[in-house]
Amino acid sequence: MGAGKKIKHTAETAKGKVKETTGKSVGNERLIAKGKAEQIKGDVAQAGQKTKDAMKH
């Protein structure tokens, strides 16, 4: 996996975690859901990239 893409996906996951935590702190269900969605999106993107890398070998 390219370092740039890995950093991007990891950052997206971390940003989602921050949104989820902030949403829990202020009681905002929409922000919690948005944060969880971003985490899932980042995790899926990382998994997809790892699969691509595995197929190259």
Rank of each mutant, 00 (worst) to 15 (best):
M1E: 14
M1S: 14
M1L: 15
M1G: 15
G2E: 15
A3Q: 15
A3I: 15
G4M: 14
G4L: 15
K5M: 15
K5D: 14
K6D: 11
K6S: 12
I7T: 07
I7G: 00
K8P: 00
T10R: 13
T10S: 08
A11K: 12
A11N: 07
A11E: 04
E12G: 00
E12N: 01
T13G: 05
T13S: 05
A14H: 06
A14E: 04
A14Y: 09
A14G: 02
A14C: 08
K15E: 10
K15M: 14
G16C: 07
K17I: 14
K19H: 03
K19D: 04
K19E: 08
E20K: 10
E20W: 06
E20Q: 06
E20Y: 06
T21V: 10
T22F: 05
G23C: 06
K24F: 03
K24R: 03
N28L: 08
R30Q: 01
R30N: 00
R30F: 00
L31T: 01
L31F: 00
I32D: 00
I32Y: 00
I32G: 00
I32Q: 01
A33V: 09
K34A: 10
K34C: 05
K34T: 11
G35I: 12
G35N: 09
G35L: 10
K36D: 10
A37N: 10
E38Y: 14
Q39F: 11
I40T: 12
K41R: 07
K41M: 12
K41P: 08
G42L: 11
G42H: 06
D43H: 07
D43Y: 08
V44A: 13
Q46C: 05
Q46F: 02
A47I: 01
A47G: 00
G48V: 05
G48E: 02
Q49S: 09
Q49D: 09
K50S: 03
T51F: 09
K52P: 07
D53P: 01
D53V: 02
D53F: 01
A54M: 11
A54K: 05
K56D: 07
K56P: 02
